[in-house]
Amino acid sequence: MRWTRPAAVYLVLVAGAVFTLAPFLLSVLTAFKPRQQFARESALAWPDPFTLDNIVALITGPAQFGRAILVTLLAATLILVGQLISSILAAYAFARVDFPGRNALFWVYLSTLMIPPVVLVVPLYLMMTEAGLRNSFWSLVLPFAFASPYAIFLLREYFRGIPQELIDAARLDGASTLDVLVEIVVPLSRPIIATLTLITIVSHWNSFMWPLVVTSGSEWRVVTVATASLQSQFNGNWTLVMAATTLALVPLLVLFLVFQRQFVRSITFSGLK
């Protein structure tokens, strides 16, 4: 029958959605439960009573989770600003500025995408140590604050799609290269810039390995490391751990709700899930 195949497709999609959303639902339910209820009732039970004690204890207590959120937010913001500025300048040079060896240099730089990020951990750690920046805020920011090959590739391809006639007309009016970039190219490239903004924020908000390696103690701990440390620091207090995971999800959820269209577009551009 005609409805059999669509029904099977929707059934598979619903099942996939349930399996995907169930861990997040469990995290939220546990975050707002009293610890005693979590110990004696099913994990799927509704919070009774609904309490914010876990959230308050997490932010104001010795876990210093509120500080971890601020450190992560500030680091991700600085990385975003640095990457956008440097990537836009480099991509425009590769797309529209003629200089010897332009294409060869671009493909050599792009080939660094093939290097696994884990390979760079030890060299970056040694560099930060020699510079005296280990276990500091700048050790979280500087290794990622400059142009990334992925961002340059996306921006270059987008810039090359902008009609050359617009740039030529601006130059006839006396515009400099920087004027053309700021007044014409960047405004026309808002969709791809929004895409890179979302990808960069999500990527560095969820960064775990590098912050774990380069920092120690709680002063410059980021959200991911702070959440992982709760499992050993507060052994068995799963309501507190789930409160941390819920708080860590809130900024990304808000980001998705506000920029949902751009987020879906970012999946199209990046080919990632």
Rank of each mutant, 00 (worst) to 15 (best):
V182I: 14
V182D: 08
V182T: 14
E183M: 15
I184D: 10
V185I: 15
V185T: 12
V185K: 06
V186Q: 09
V186S: 11
V186A: 10
P187R: 03
P187W: 07
P187I: 03
L188N: 14
L188I: 07
L188E: 08
S189N: 11
S189G: 09
S189Y: 05
R190W: 13
R190C: 04
R190F: 13
R190V: 12
P191D: 06
P191G: 07
I193S: 04
I193P: 02
I193E: 03
A194V: 04
A194Y: 10
A194E: 14
A194F: 13
T195Q: 02
T195F: 02
T195E: 03
L196W: 00
L196N: 01
L198P: 01
L198A: 01
L198C: 01
L198S: 01
I199V: 15
I199G: 00
T200V: 08
T200W: 02
T200A: 03
T200M: 02
T200Y: 00
T200S: 05
T200L: 03
I201G: 00
V202K: 12
V202S: 12
V202F: 10
S203P: 00
S203T: 02
H204W: 11
H204P: 03
H204S: 06
H204C: 03
W205M: 03
W205S: 02
W205H: 06
W205V: 02
N206S: 13
N206F: 02
N206A: 09
S207C: 05
F208L: 15
F208D: 04
M209N: 12
M209E: 15
M209Q: 14
M209H: 08
W210D: 07
W210K: 04
P211L: 07
P211W: 05
L212I: 03
L212T: 11
L212W: 09
L212Q: 11
V213K: 09
V213N: 11
V214L: 05
T215L: 05
S216P: 05
S216M: 11
S216F: 09
G217L: 10
G217Y: 10
S218F: 12
S218V: 13
E219R: 13
E219Q: 15
W220S: 11
W220N: 14
R221I: 13
R221N: 11
R221S: 14
V222R: 10
V223Q: 08
V223H: 04
V223Y: 06
T224V: 08
T224L: 04
